[in-house]
Structure formats: structure tokens, C-alpha cells
């Protein structure tokens, strides 16, 4: 597993220059609560027909920041982005809330400050 740290502003450019749709596929977006209002966002990729080649792009953000969307490059990211919005209560461009959670359920259950 190779981890590459990127900044929130450059993540789209980094993924754009790296992602070749015939070689890599997006496994998922992953979030990780670091502190009460800090989290790590990971974009996990894996290579077709290669032995355990996994590349993780990650960045650390405040919960109030907005994560840029990569759906225009990788259409299948939409579902993971919607999950992150639900689970961590952050904003992702163009992804609305409500994939899993309802109005009356626990909000942002996986972030450091769930309610």
C-alpha cells in the first residue's frame, strides 16, 4: 500500500494526472476521524491484474471544508461521496445527503462529534 499526501486544492489535479481508466480502478473513498472536527479523506485505487498494488491519496481537512468532487473523472465515485457526506457530515461538491440516514437518525455517526 502506497500512501501519497496531497493538499485539498491539488487533489483533483493529482488524481487527474494519475488516473488511467484502463489501468486503475477506484476502490472507494474513505474517511477517518482524527479529532473532534478534523478528518482524513482517502481516495483508494487499485491496479487491474497486478499483485496487491494499492495507491492511497489522502488529505487532512477540517470538518467545515468542502471536498472537491471527482465524479466527472470517475463516475463511480458518486456513491462513495454520498456515503462520506452522510457518515461524516462534511460537504462534497454535488453530493447530497440521505443515502443511508434519515432526518431522525443519528447524524454523522462516524465523525469525532456524532449527534
Amino acid at each position: 500500500m502506497k500512501k501519497i499526501k496531497v493538499s485539498l486544492e491539488s487533489v483533483r489535479d493529482e488524481i487527474k494526472s494519475f488516473y488511467d481508466y484502463k489501468q486503475w480502478h477506484l476502490l472507494t473513498l474513505n474517511g477517518l476521524a482524527l479529532a473532534e472536527n478534523k478528518m482524513e479523506v482517502q481516495w483508494i485505487f487499485s491496479k487491474y491484474e497486478a499483485m496487491d498494488e494499492i495507491v492511497v491519496y489522502y488529505t487532512e481537512i477540517e470538518n467545515t471544508e468542502t471536498i472537491p468532487s471527482i465524479v466527472d473523472m470517475i463516475p463511480s465515485a458518486i456513491i462513495s461521496q454520498r456515503e462520506i457526506v452522510d457518515m461524516f457530515g462534511v460537504k462534497v461538491d454535488g453530493s447530497e445527503k440521505g443515502l443511508y440516514l434519515d432526518e431522525d437518525s443519528m447524524q454523522r455517526p462516524l465523525s469525532g462529534c456524532s449527534i
Binding site: 480502478h25 487499485s46 487491474y48 491484474e49 497486478a50 499483485m51 496487491d52
Partner: peptide, 10 residues
């Protein structure tokens, strides 16, 4: 598409 994880893990 040749994707089968059984082929990609040791």
C-alpha cells in the same frame, strides 16, 4: 474485463 481479486492477491 479481467478483474478477479483471486488473481491479484498472494
Amino acid at each position: 474485463l479481467n478483474i478477479d481479486v483471486r488473481n491479484e492477491i498472494g
